[in-house]
């Protein structure tokens, strides 16, 4: 795999140093730009997008220590990796750079091999951080993403009460057999865009996508006033959106899609599961199983949305849910009360 190229800002008041560092950075395959002091550097960092800063310390106007402090104080620049390249005298100055948040220190004249290794490692770390942020944004509302970013990515679980919603497209496999692959993916993308909208506009997060199905969580990681009500509202929006989509599909002579959704409310164990390198916010427990069983049962029951007793009891208008025949689901010792919306 080709290494991702970085856009590097070189900050140095000395022309020879600027030219030499830019040459080294470019020979390593990255893009280099230069600023001649800290003040100019901060202006450029605020106005443009860079992946990494190579920072000299001894500079007029605004020195490297001040630049480090300013970068760490700006929320949008805080994660910018900074490698200090200087010929500073005194270990205490180098320690100060690291304490101010510099990723590394390279003495001048900079060794090309060492520079290459440091650049790759810092850019890779930044790439992973950016990727993590993007993934988080994709799977959670912006508020939840920020909240998680601030609370950190510690692996660990919490027991809490939440509502779990499963939904999928009925007979999607059969439907997709008649479609060219591109049309199948396009239809799935449209479907997912609509479903994500319905989930996030009601305060939930989508935390699993499998084929044509998804699992959404309400009440975790951020508490909601009434997770069950939010989940039911999201399901309602899903069906309204699909109705509109089907009108368009019909007009275009394209196949329509049918949804099924199941919602259960109760205790779940939620948190980050995985390894330090790769983790996902996930949720397990009996409530999750029940929601999945309810969704699977929609076809047999001939209903669009099925909910469990606790979801129904939490609704502002429980009478709107119609009780249907109990079912003894696999994995549950007792037959479950089921309600249709």
């Amino acid at each position: 795999m080709a290494e991702a190229l970085g856009h590097v800002l070189i900050v140095d008041d000395n022309k020879v140093n600027r030219l030499l560092l830019a040459r080294n950075v470019e020979l390593l395959g990255h893009r280099a730009e230069a600023a001649e002091n800290g003040k100019v550097a901060m202006e450029r960092l605020r106005a443009e997008t860079f992946d990494l800063v190579l920072l000299d310390i001894e500079m007029p106007e605004m020195d490297g220590f001040e630049v480090l402090a300013a970068i760490k104080a700006a929320p949008e620049l805080r994660d910018m990796p900074v490698i200090v390249t200087s010929s500073l005298e005194g270990l205490d100055n180098i320690v100060r750079c690291i304490e101010l948040g510099a990723e590394d220190y390279l003495p001048k004249p900079v060794n090309q091999v060492l520079l290459g290794a440091r650049l790759s490692s810092s850019l890779e770390k930044k790439r992973l951080r950016d990727e993590q942020k993007r993934l988080l944004d994709r799977f959670a509302t912006h508020e939840v993403a920020l909240d998680l970013q601030n609370s950190g990515f510690a692996i660990g679980g919490k027991r809490l009460t939440a509502s779990v919603l499963f939904c999928d497209i009925r007979d999607f496999t059969a439907l997709s057999e008649d479609l060219p692959p591109e049309a199948t993916i396009e239809l799935l993308n449209t479907y997912y865009t609509l479903m994500f909208d319905a989930v996030s506009s009601n305060g939930g997060i989508v935390n699993l996508m499998i084929g044509d199905g998804l699992m959404a969580l309400f009440g975790a990681p951020q508490p909601l006033e009434n997770p069950a009500q939010s989940a039911v509202a999201a399901a309602g929006e899903m069906f309204s959106m699909i109705t509109v989509l089907n009108q368009e599909q019909r007009a275009a002579g394209a196949p329509e899609i049918r949804l099924g959704a199941g919602i259960a409310t109760g205790e779940v164990v939620a948190g980050y599961a995985g390894t330090d390198e790769r983790a996902a916010y996930t949720c397990v427990g009996k409530t999750v199983n029940l929601a999945a069983r309810l969704e699977a049962h929609t076809k047999a029951a001939g209903r669009r949305i099925l909910i469990d007793r606790q979801t129904r009891n939490s609704l502002r208008d429980p009478a709107a849910a119609e009780r249907i025949q109990q079912v003894a689901f696999k994995g549950f010792s007792e037959p479950q009360d089921i309600f249709a919306l």
């Binding site: 008041d13 000395n14 020879v16 140093n17 001894e58 500079m59 200087s86 010929s87 001048k108 004249p109």
Partner: peptide, 12 residues
């Protein structure tokens, strides 16, 4: 600062 710059370049 001037001495520092000169040192740095001379080393290069």
């Amino acid at each position: 600062r001037a001495a520092h710059s000169l040192k740095s370049n001379a080393n290069t």
